[in-house]
Computed example of a mutant assay.
Amino acid sequence: MSQKADLGISSFGFAFGEDRDVAMSAGDYVDNPERVINWGFRTFHRAPDETHAIQLATDASRRALDQSGTVVQDLDLVVLASSDLPEYSYRDEAAALARSLGIERTQTLFLQEGCGAGVHGLYYVAASMNMQPEMSRVLFVAVNRVSEFHRNRMNVVNAVLSDAAAAVVIERGRSSSRWLATEQFTEPENCDLLRVDFGGTVNPLPPEGWSSRTAPGGHEAIRAQFGDDPNTLQRFLQNRYRRLVEVIDHACARAGIGRADLTHLIYLNDSATSINTVAEPLGIPLERTNAALALDHGHMGAADQLVSFGQQLERGELSSGDIVVLCGISTERWSATLLQV
């Protein structure tokens, strides 16, 4: 972009499923609960069976709108980023959110690009505001509501999957929580790594007797992909972190700053070891990451980074002028967004 839109976050709103104790619940999902408990997560959020993504997104949106004093008629764009299955096929879920909020004749955009969509989705907001100078307020929502029929929330990755939504109102001319840059790229080779093998046009229905409780998990998929070759697997894991640092460096270059200017890092809600692997090359200490918050939330998909950023602001853990990098991976898409407090 030749010019940058001058925009920032004016308010936050969150919605969470019911708090569940990981140690007490792990046996309901896996046969080896100790493995899950050893990840270190204390709590995860599970939405009631009747509460789905649009309801979570609506609740978070209303809280963000109320906090900023924004009425829905003032919104110029509604963006919904979802990291799990939509409620219905052949439906625009962003339009469903707009309808739930009582919005009419407003632009909507639906992003379904995995766990990093809450990070790189901010680029599409900035691009829209840059291309349309009349656009002054945008509602951006990131939601994750696990379909337990399709996925075992404790057997996909080394984190407990949680149900939550984070909503922000983004306004033109904001000097705080200001967007500086977003960078992203895709390495598509392993895009099938964590796919669900049914529910699409290739295999509409699951095999007879299939259950997410007993189906192979993400670790089995990784072993199958790399053929139990430890060297290839190790290179794959190392490259994931190297590419995160690479995409952060690219975002810094776009913003005209360097690594030394970064004060905080917010990654996916992962283990402290994993988060530190990203933060250490940047010179960011673990206490200036989301490592502590992650253990009480679990992995909330696309909502991780915005929840952590908003809660760190609420707790006074961020100071005016701090530059925070939000970063994430959506299978094979790496992304980073820089925000200045």
Rank of each mutant, 00 (worst) to 15 (best):
D229M: 10
T186F: 04
N276R: 09
L75T: 12
R105H: 08
R137F: 01
T214S: 10
P216F: 13
E280V: 08
T277H: 10
V78F: 01
A166Y: 00
Q234A: 15
N144G: 06
E220A: 15
L205Y: 08
L313I: 06
Q55T: 15
L111W: 12
G283C: 11
M131H: 04
L265D: 05
V168W: 08
T51N: 05
I54E: 01
F309N: 10
D6Q: 12
C115H: 13
R63F: 03
D49H: 03
S10V: 07
R195P: 07
S25H: 09
Q305R: 10
D49W: 00
V72I: 15
L56M: 13
F185Y: 15
V119A: 00
T331L: 01
R62L: 13
T58R: 15
V71M: 13
V71T: 15
A95Q: 11
A117G: 05
N155V: 04
Y267Q: 00
D270C: 04
T214I: 03
S212C: 11
L65G: 03
V79E: 01
V71E: 14
A221M: 03
A23S: 07
I248W: 11
L265M: 09
D322I: 03
C327T: 15
H297D: 10
D19I: 09
I323W: 12
V196F: 13
S83W: 04
L282G: 01
A81V: 10
Y267G: 00
E189V: 09
A15C: 15
R259D: 04
V247P: 01
T337H: 10
S319E: 15
V71C: 13
R213V: 07
V71S: 14
N190K: 05
D84M: 07
Q107W: 02
Q225K: 15
R137Y: 02
S11V: 05
G301E: 06
D59L: 15
P33I: 01
E18N: 15
S212Q: 10
I266T: 08
G27S: 08
S82M: 12
E287W: 09
S271F: 10
T277R: 08
P281G: 00
H250G: 01
I222V: 15
A159F: 01
G209A: 06
H150K: 03
Q107F: 00
L97T: 08
M135Y: 04
E287N: 12
A81I: 09
I257D: 01
S176I: 09
A26E: 06
F149I: 13
A159R: 07
R315H: 02
A64H: 09
T58N: 08
T232V: 09
Q312P: 02
Q234L: 11
A98K: 05
D84E: 12
Y29P: 05
W210L: 08
P33T: 05
A60K: 10
A15W: 15
G40L: 11
D21T: 07
S147A: 05
A165V: 08
S176Q: 13
I37Y: 02
S320P: 07
T182A: 10
G173R: 14
A167M: 10
A53G: 09
E113F: 07
S82D: 07
N239S: 14
M1H: 13
L326A: 01
E189D: 10
G321T: 09
A5E: 06
E104F: 00
P33L: 00
N276I: 00
I323C: 02
W39Q: 12
C191T: 09
L265Q: 06
S212G: 12
L77R: 11
H120I: 01
